[in-house]
């Protein structure tokens, strides 16, 4: 079993390099999310809207950053806050690289409370698609099998 990670200010999170976004993925995300805005799925429509072709849902890119955060926090950790601004459009073929940097660490209730900056870069463009911040908890010590919180 892997030992517990102790976070420090300045630690780099990731990179998580995602496979290139595909048009099929945008159709799948539309179906799974219920967001059927045709700018994500119909090229003709997106061109008429002045976008030059379909663009990815901002929430899809945010989900990639969410994966980075949940993988970083680990099974014993939990995401507490997560916010982003959508700053650049993502298109089919783009490779998204998610990264972060720890900006604060506190110990509270036997856990590490980690504050970080996060971002998703569009590989090869020098541009960020989203930038934001997050707070997550991570265990201070090795845990047994993580127990599921009681539901309602």
């Amino acid at each position: 079993m892997a030992s517990v990670r102790r976070f420090q200010v300045g630690d780099v999170l990731g990179p998580l390099v995602r496979p290139p976004v595909t048009k099929t993925q945008l159709v799948m995300y539309s179906g799974a999310s219920g967001d059927f805005n045709p700018i994500h799925t119909v090229d003709e429509y997106a061109r008429e809207a002045g976008l030059g072709g379909v663009i990815a849902h901002g929430m899809l890119t945010m989900a990639f950053v969410g994966q980075l955060l949940t993988e970083t926090a680990g099974a014993g950790g939990a995401l507490k806050r997560f916010g982003v601004r959508f700053v650049e459009m993502v298109r089919p073929g783009d490779t998204i690289v998610c990264e972060g940097r720890v900006t604060g660490v506190a110990e509270q209730g036997g856990q590490q409370v980690v504050t970080c900056d996060v971002w998703a870069a569009i590989e090869g463009s020098g541009k960020h698609a989203v930038i934001g911040q997050a707070v997550f908890t991570a265990p201070l010590q090795e845990e047994e099998t993580p127990s599921q919180e009681d539901g309602p």
Binding site: R18, P19, Q25, M28, Y29, G31, A32, S33, M59, L60, M62, A63, F64, G66, Q67, L69, T70, E71, L79, F82, T145, P146, S147, Q148, G151
Partner: peptide
């Protein structure tokens, strides 16, 4: 279906046994 669409392989989103009973939803 959501986990499949975002391409996140986390077993907690797919496998009830791995999730300890009920599936967990991804953060978004």
């Amino acid at each position: 279906k959501f986990a499949e669409a975002i391409g996140d392989p986390n077993p907690l989103y797919r496998d009830e046994a791995a999730a300890g009973g009920r599936l967990v939803a991804p953060p978004t």
